[in-house]
Structures are given as C-alpha cells and as structure tokens.
Design a protein around this nucleic acid. Sequence first.
DNA 1: ACAATAATGTAATAAAAATACATTTATAAG
DNA 2: CTTATAAATGTATTTTTATTACATTATTGT
Lengths: 289, 289
Amino acid sequence: MTTPQTLLSNLAKPAQAFSKAEQKVADAILANPELTTRSSIARLAQSAEVSEPTVNRFCKRLGATGFPDFKLKLALSLASGARFINSAVAEDDTAPTFTPKIFNASIHALEKTRDSIDPKLIHHVIDEVVASKRIYFFGQGNSGPVAQDAEFKFFRFNTPVSAHQDPLMQRMLAAASKPGDLLFIISYTGRTIGLVETARLARDSLATVISITAPASPLARASDLAITLDVGEDTDEYLPMTSRLAQLTLLDVIATGVTLRQGQAHLPHLARIKASLASTRFDSVEQDV
Amino acid sequence: MTTPQTLLSNLAKPAQAFSKAEQKVADAILANPELTTRSSIARLAQSAEVSEPTVNRFCKRLGATGFPDFKLKLALSLASGARFINSAVAEDDTAPTFTPKIFNASIHALEKTRDSIDPKLIHHVIDEVVASKRIYFFGQGNSGPVAQDAEFKFFRFNTPVSAHQDPLMQRMLAAASKPGDLLFIISYTGRTIGLVETARLARDSLATVISITAPASPLARASDLAITLDVGEDTDEYLPMTSRLAQLTLLDVIATGVTLRQGQAHLPHLARIKASLASTRFDSVEQDV
DNA sequence: ACAATAATGTAATAAAAATACATTTATAAG
DNA sequence: CTTATAAATGTATTTTTATTACATTATTGT
C-alpha cells in the first residue's frame, strides 16, 4: 500500500517540468540519494554543476523549507515510503494511489500542527476552561461538526457546555454572555464576518473568547486567546481540508489537559454517563461516546 | 554500528550511564524527538540547558560523526516506527508532554488505517456513490459530527445528500428509502442497536447500505458493504477516540474518488457554491467550506 | 529585434557546527 | 581535609554550511 520512494520517483518523473539547472540537481540527487542526505549544499551543487542557490531553490520548489529540511525528507523517503512530498492527487489517480496520498496529507497536517503548537498557550487555555462557568463552541460550515464534536468531548466535565452552528443563535448567546462564560470559536480562515462580530459581542459582555483559527486573522485579533493553525492548504484542488483534523486533535489535547487537571474529581460524573448508554448497545463493553 | 532502531531506545535506557549534562540532553531529545530532527544544535542545547559542545560530544558518544549525522539517524529511527513507545498519557503529564503524545496517537491511527484499507473496496464504494440517486449519512454520538462533516463534503456533488443524528429520523428515512438510495452508517463499535436496525430496514427497502464500523460487528454484517476500521484498543484511559479522524479521512478519500470519477462535469456546480459564500467573508479569497 | 520576464549565478551575510582551550567539578591518595 | 589528577563542562573562536540580496544571463512573446 505504502508506495516507497515517493519523493524519489517524483524527482525522476519527466513530467515534473524542471528547468535545465534544476534537472541537473535532480539527476545528481538521483545518482546517489543516500550520499545526498549526508552532503552539504556546496558538495551537491558541485556534483550537479550548478550554483548553491540553485540547489536551495530546487529544495524549496519541492516543498522543503531549505536544504537541511530537504535532506531530512529525502532520508525519510528513502527509509520508509515518503509521506511528505508529492501527495498531490492527480486526475489519473485511482483508488490504490490516491488513498494513501490523502491519508498522508492528513498525517502531515497533524505532524505540522504538533510541531507548531505552543504548550504554554495550551496551558493557558486549560486554565480558562477550568475557571469557566459555562462553555460554548461555535463553528460555521465545515467547522460546525468540529464544534459539535467538542461538545461531546467536553460534556464529560461538569461545566455546562453546548455547541452551536446557527449564526443567529451564536450571536444571541454571545450578546447574552456573562463573565465566567467561555466561548471557543472555530474557523479555518478567521475571516467569517459573523464569527468575528460574535467574538466582539462576547468580549463586550466580558466573556472570554478563545479562537482556533488562522494566524493574524481578524478573528485571532478579536479573541482573548488565539490558537493559530497554519496547516497550509489550497495547493492541490483535489486534496480535502485537513485543518479540521488538526482542530479536532487540538480540542482532544485541551480536553485531556482538563481531565488531567481535574484529577479524579469528575469520575463519578463519567460513570453516570457510561451507565446511561449501556442499554442502547448490543454489548455494553464498548461505546461510541 | 548504531542501527537506526536502537538509537531511540538507547536514549531511553537508564543503563546508559550518561553523565549529568548528557542525561539532560537525552531527556530533551526524548521530550520531542521529531522536533529535535529539525533543530539546530543551539536550540537543543538551550532546551537541555547545556552548552553546545556538550550536545556535540553527546552525539559523537552515540556513534554519530556529529550533530547533523545524529539528527539524520534519529530521523531514521523515528521513521522505523520506534516512536510510539512512550505515547501513553500519564497523570503527571503536563502540556508540553501530553500534547505530542495525543497528536502521535492520532497520527498513528491514520497510519494504521492507511495501511489496512483495501483500495478495491474503496473503488466499489465509489461506484455505489456515483450510481446513487440520493445519499444519507447516519451517525449517533461521536459519529454524529462525522456524518455532518460528510454531508458538507458530499454537498459538492449534484446528488442530494443529508446527514442525520436523530435515531427516529434515521429510522423513518431508512423505512422510507427506495432503490437508488445510499445510506452511509458510521459507528465505531457497530453495536448501537438503533443503527443496526436502521440498516436492516433500509436493506428491506432495497436501498444500499455502506457502513464504516468495526470488523465483524453486527452493523458490518447488516450492511451491503462494510469498511472496517480497526484503529486499536483505547487502552489508555486518557487518550481520546482517534477513530473519528480515521472515519473523516476515509470519507475524504471516498469524496475525492467521486470527484475524480466525475471529472470536470460538476465544476460549474462548485463555482456556484463558492460564489454564494463570498459575501460572508471579510476577504473572499479564502473560505471555510 | 526588443522589451519583459524568468532563470541562474556571484558575492555577501547569516546561521550552524566543530574546535581549541579554559574552567569547574569530581575523585583518590596522602 | 588537603591537594594532585582526571574527568566533565563551558566559553570563545574558527570553520563550515546555508541563505539572501542583487547582478547577470538566458528565454519568451510581441
């Protein structure tokens, strides 16, 4: 299933439309990929008979942040079927080829998010959750289901929680919010007008607003705390939104943090929830919730 | 000599007899190995609170020729799957430690799903979607948001689609279904009584039922096609459900397959959807949907 | 043939890693 | 309990490596 050497085969593909100098770089890498993972940019430039910046540009064109990053990805691609580069879905893809690509794109988004999250910020968010009297999750469009998922997750705590996708309802609840209320606003772009206004309304009411959104977006600016996710999308029209997976996992992290913070205190509450579900199952050992 | 796999476990081994400063380095690397593979020696030295030469000596002691070589070997060791040794969340975990653990658990779930999916089955599912006159997504509990997410995704196609979380609604729609109708039923356990009965009702009405659920479960048996996900036990009480991420990505795969199958035919439909959203944004370049 | 643009290279700068060497800390002998 | 000795660690410097800014050279379309 896992096609090994995806980066490599990508290099070899003639359809790649490399420029002359870049083709030389590709050839030089292909001639001895293992060596390349341990080369300096100068050595590779020399063996490809091009200048060093050309090598650097070549790396960036292939999605790396620079030469060292490229070497790392190349090494991984050699070791275990590449999952970083060339996950673009093409029109001639079939189920066996696009299935791993899409999973890889999702995995990549999570890896990127994992490495960009600031634990201190998470800590602050958990503080706010623990301190709150009531929690709302707001999302529209694709982020609506994320908000709802969060509701299920946070339902385990004793704090009242609800998720809302309807813009009017969101607006009304924001306007009616009070100090001690905590609003999570989830938006990939952070540019949905209604949600930004909702954030402002809530803050006017002295509620706390935490957004999960794009860096430097209007929503991020309008929030008390903003967890910004830059998953980097839109490059491939066939690749679906991976940001919601990052949002979901991020909310998992926050919920887990709250659970750990609360310690054993809430366990009886949880037991009641589990018991209430038992009768809806064929077999009560496992559960969806 | 240092084979890739042994590097990580070597670090974790207490028997290693590291000196004080070297132990700090080992701890810092273990705290976030993925990040280390992309760090500079200065960054790692700082996070371990030691000097840079100490890090360098540490690397050499472990058989690398220097820091870059060490990073390379570390990356390879991570790629070979040694990274999940430490992913159980413990009560004394704090934000910096449990955050990567949870992301890793999610990533692992996707990797496992990626490698267990049968592309032929996906192909059949896409056939059914393309052939269908109407599509329903049913889920309860945690799978409810997944169904809703799928609705957003499949809305792009011309086939009428709706998601339902209410058991009564699901039952009624299943009973009223007709040949040409396609029901996706999403359930992690495949043991929710209501959903299994719904599947039977729908098949009695000659609709097609595709489930995304657990292997060998009652729901899987009650379906025409079952995509079974075995993400693994939730052995750790603090680790959240990762199955829904696998479900979501799987539905991404199916939707992408349908898109590719339909080719350009549906593009005008998509353009209209995009246009309808433009006025709700501060900046119409990006979008949530 | 000539602008406009893209591609590539040169030279300078910044960043990273390794080295030489100084200082501190631990150890063991008297 | 010193004090010589060795081991460990850190500081400052040099060397290597990577990136950037900018100049030059090709390429393309009119």
